[in-house]
Design a protein around this nucleic acid. Structure first.
Length: 273
DNA sequence: AAACCTGGCAACCGCTTCGTA
DNA sequence: GTACGAAGCGGTTGCCAGGTT
């Protein structure tokens, strides 16, 4: 049965999102919540495919996203989870607060994979590499761009001359940090209304590693072992309370505002201890 | 200074899964 | 049980910034 295109290809814009488009999408989601993604572009006045809107929101605009490199702990957790789950990035992401599947997937391919190879561990099987996995010209670590993009799965390259800790992430930290600042500035402006009032205090939420959206808006409420405490999970509630959820259009997050208040009260009680 | 190379990330594509009529 | 549409997911690509020659 022929597959329907996800959207009308004609007149649908592709490529990088503009600040204007981001703003429209944010405003729409804040006002209406995440409903039928297919209808979002039309209703939000965007010439984008619904899929594209969903990706942009979940991977970039969501206020509960952490930014910047994964911490050592997060990286270790990703490795552990990958050993158990394989390339099921969404499942892995569900267990890391504020991280997206795309982000984890990219980080895996660009950092962790190489790190494991340098440590002599096959990133696919998580088993030690054999001797016949010696570096060859054109293999990943001698890498060309093309090789990087083809992502060889054979697990070549057991370069024991490098220490395990000597990895590529160090060289990128500075630029990434710079990008974060730029992104946060950009996002800060995006999360302002037309009168430059904050729609949501995104930056403080991120800096505190807190979440703004309730768990229900995140990863389908999967149970999350070995995760941040309830307090961490729900810290966004205090921010919402501080700024007033209604004021910022976040009341859509909660099916029952009384439930929200109750949750807040109980959290406050917990917090006082 | 310019050309080329490399690495990283945002975004797209297409397949799979889920929900519903 | 089946067909279909919508959303989710993972793989892949393209662009761009920074580094190197």
């Amino acid at each position: 049965m022929g597959r329907q295109p996800c959207c009308d290809k004609l007149g649908v814009k592709k490529g990088p999102w503009t600040a204007e488009e981001d703003k429209k999408l944010i405003n729409f989601i804040l006002t209406n919540g995440q409903c039928c993604w297919r209808a979002v572009p039309k209703l939000a006045g965007l010439r984008r495919c619904g899929k594209s809107c969903r990706l942009r929101w979940t991977n970039y605009l969501r206020p509960d996203l952490k930014r910047g490199l994964l911490t050592e702990d997060e990286e270790q957790l990703v490795i552990d989870l990958h050993a158990r789950l394989g390339n099921r990035w969404s499942k892995i992401a569900a267990r890391l607060q504020g991280r997206t599947d795309n982000e984890i997937k990219n980080h895996w391919n660009t950092h962790i994979k190489k790190k494991l190879l340098k440590m002599g561990i096959d990133p696919v099987t998580h088993e030690p590499l054999h001797d016949n996995h010696k570096p060859k010209p054109g293999d990943e670590l001698s890498s060309s761009h093309a090789n990087h993009h083809r992502m060889p799965e054979s697990g070549d390259n057991n370069n024991s001359s490098s220490s395990p800790t000597e990895n590529c992430s160090s060289s990128t930290t500075t630029t990434t940090t710079t990008n974060i600042c730029t992104d946060e500035t950009l996002l800060n402006s995006l999360w302002m209304d037309d009168d430059q009032h904050p729609l949501v205090d995104v930056i403080s939420c991120n800096n505190n590693n807190n979440n703004l959206l309730p768990p229900a808006m995140e990863n389908h409420g999967e149970t999350v072992p070995s995760l941040p405490s309830l307090e961490d999970d729900c810290a966004f509630l205090f921010d919402c309370q501080d700024f007033g959820v209604h004021d910022y259009g976040l009341d859509y997050c909660f099916s029952d505002i009384n439930e929200f208040s109750t949750g807040l009260n109980s959290l406050e009680m917990t917090n006082k201890h």
